[in-house]
Write a protein that binds this DNA or RNA. Structure first.
Length: 175
DNA sequence: TGCGCGATTCTC
DNA sequence: AGAATCGCGCAT
C-alpha cells in the first residue's frame, strides 16, 4: 500500500528531507502510458543563501528561480551542457533549497537517473503529482536504523572546503 | 554580443 | 586524461 508524498513533506529542513527521501519511490508516467517506478538510494541537500555549493548562493537568477519557489516542485537543470539533473524543492517560498536525486536502485548517478526516468528541462518547475506524470510515493519500506551513511557532496570543490566537506549526501546501500 | 564555465558521463 | 555540449551569468 502506497501513498503519494505531498507538498508538506518537503516543507521542512532540507537535510532532513534529503535523508528521509531514501527508500521513497519516484514514479514517472511516460507518453506511452507506461509507468516507471524506482526507489531512491542517494540524495544531496542544497540549502539556503549561504551554501556556496548551491546554484542559489549568489541570489535569484532565471536559472535557479525555482529553488526560491514553493516546496515539492521539480527543479531540473542542464549540467555540463550534456545531462539533466533532477531536484525536488524544499522549504517555504522565498528560501532557496532543493534535494538533488543522485541515484535510484540500480541507477547510479544523477545524469543516469534523469536518463532512466526520461526527465528533461520540460519537466522543470512542475508540481509533483500524478497529473503531471512525475510524483513520489511512500510504501513504508525504507532504510533500517543505521543503514544510511552521510558523505560529502560530489563535484562541488569550487565551493571551498567549508561547504564541499559538509556531509549532505545521503546514501542507502540496500542489500 | 561575447566568453568561460559547470551539482556529469563516456571513451580513449 | 580528455571530450562532449549548451544555457546561463556576468563582463563588454
Amino acid at each position: 500500500m502506497s501513498r503519494v508524498i505531498s507538498k508538506k513533506f518537503f516543507d521542512r529542513a532540507t537535510v532532513t528531507v534529503a535523508e528521509e527521501l531514501l527508500g521513497k519511490t519516484i514514479c514517472r508516467r511516460l507518453k506511452s502510458g507506461k509507468i516507471l517506478r524506482a526507489r531512491i538510494t542517494e540524495t544531496e541537500a542544497y540549502d539556503g543563501f549561504e551554501d556556496r555549493a548551491s546554484h542559489a548562493h549568489k541570489g535569484v537568477t532565471t536559472r535557479n528561480v525555482v529553488m526560491f519557489g514553493p516546496p515539492g516542485r521539480s527543479y531540473v537543470t542542464l549540467c555540463y551542457g550534456v545531462h539533466c539533473l533532477f531536484n525536488v524543492t524544499t522549504r517555504e517560498k522565498g528560501y532557496p533549497a532543493a534535494v538533488l536525486i543522485r541515484g535510484l536502485h540500480g541507477v547510479d548517478g544523477p545524469g543516469r537517473t534523469t536518463k532512466y526516468l526520461q526527465i528533461d528541462r520540460s519537466q522543470n518547475d512542475q508540481l509533483l503529482n500524478r497529473v503531471n506524470g512525475l510524483w513520489l510515493e511512500d510504501d513504508g519500506i525504507g532504510p533500517e536504523q543505521g543503514s544510511v551513511i552521510a558523505l560529502p557532496r560530489i563535484g562541488v570543490e569550487y565551493a571551498g572546503t567549508n561547504w564541499s566537506k559538509k556531509p549532505w549526501r545521503f546514501n542507502w546501500s540496500a542489500n
